[in-house]
Design a protein around this nucleic acid. Structure first.
Lengths: 212, 212
DNA sequence: CCCGGCATCAATCAAAAGGTTGAACTCCGC
DNA sequence: GCGGAGTTCAACCTTTTGATTGATGCCGGG
């Protein structure tokens, strides 16, 4: 989008992590860190202002801000001529990766990635190519091979509350349903996940990253 | 313990975070970063080898290593002439802070702390003074003021399994107890927390950071 | 040295929650 | 417009929970 230099925006609420990214990336001659954002909102602003090729985006933005990294990613990539967004986070579950990728992230890296991978991923993102952490790529492929076990929105909602320790009755009240309906959803969830109890369902769903 | 220079060991499994800490602390003329460790085990080794005044210790060490930061802290501080351990982590709940402090950590900071605080905390730790993040200090004082609701070790253990969705029977098997004992613990937990159901207990305990 | 808190267990019982089966309705795609 | 998936519900039975009562051994502080 620009000349030879890739202009970067670092979006992370942790000063230490920003400094770390800066330290790791600053050495690359073809990179220029042009801005930093400590909140998701600020990242959206700065990205919209232009002059940025790649945004390094964290997903978690502390209790301070209302927006998370996935939402910010969606906002940034929505407009034309938007910079690429490369998610760099600690979390490695479907519940994190899928929303981020759906929101338009070009890549998804984990913070424990070695610095070289980071730089390569940034160049890939700048060129429009996607860069995924191996574990993320694995799970995406896995998901392709296993089209099964896709819970409906309602089922996911119910299962999320189950995971929070709510009883069927509490769930029914929260969702304005009868207990019967909640139980019915659970049966379908059990079938889809191949389990036969709520705790096993929560385990299975956690394992596959269906819920947080 | 040494001259004017404070010798630091950085223990964190994330290269980016290590680089960030290095970038933030390296500028201080009275600091010298003498080693880095990507695993808790390695941190223990390096700390035991001597030549270190303060260890900056993460609590979470990825699925790769068997030891966590709190355990490593305990091992490091166990021996005489050990360096001070300053915990620097993302997690801010009683379930994290208390074990770390009990393990002998001199301080507890959050990764979102501003760089100045970090440097001050390191100097405090080197001098043997404790340095706590404001939120951690608040909760410790809160705990002093509220001697209530202190669950015993066994009770916390049981409640943790309850939070994982296990039934009383499963808990009894896991802990090699009778169901009667598990129920007995639960009754005590309910009394202490002022609730009257397992899910409410989990909520309450989560709210107070008693469990993760 | 005795008391209180902690951990352990037993037995019983009513209430709550969980799981199963079967069924109606809507919406969407083919 | 037929069929399937998703959402909703009822009735029924089983399992789990929570309340209660009561008892034992251990350990540490006053």
């Amino acid at each position: 989008m620009s000349g030879a230099v890739i202009r970067l925006l670092l979006a992370d609420d942790h000063p230490v992590v920003r400094a770390g990214l800066r330290a790791v990336l600053e050495g690359e001659p073809d990179f220029a860190i042009v801005a930093e954002a400590a909140t998701a909102e600020r990242a959206v602003e700065l990205a919209a202002a232009g002059g940025v090729d790649v945004v390094l985006m964290d997903l978690q933005f502390g209790p301070g801000s209302a927006m998370n990294g996935a939402q910010a990613t969606a906002e940034i990539t929505a407009r034309a001529g938007a910079p690429r967004v490369l998610v760099v986070t600690t979390y490695d579950t479907d519940a994190d990766t899928l929303p981020a990728l759906e929101a338009g992230a070009t890549g998804y890296l984990l913070k424990d990635a070695p610095p070289e991978h980071l730089a390569q991923a940034v160049r890939a993102a700048a060129a429009g190519r996607s860069a995924l952490a191996p574990s993320v790529a694995d799970r995406l492929l896995e998901r392709m091979r296993t089209p099964a076990a896709a819970l409906s929105a309602r089922e996911t909602e119910v299962l999320g509350l189950v995971a929070d320790g709510l009883t069927n009755q509490q769930i029914s009240q929260r969702l304005h349903l009868s207990q019967a309906t909640v139980k019915s959803h659970l049966v379908h969830i059990y079938t889809k996940l191949g389990v036969d109890s709520r705790t096993a369902a929560v385990r299975a769903a956690r394992g596959r990253g269906l819920i947080r």
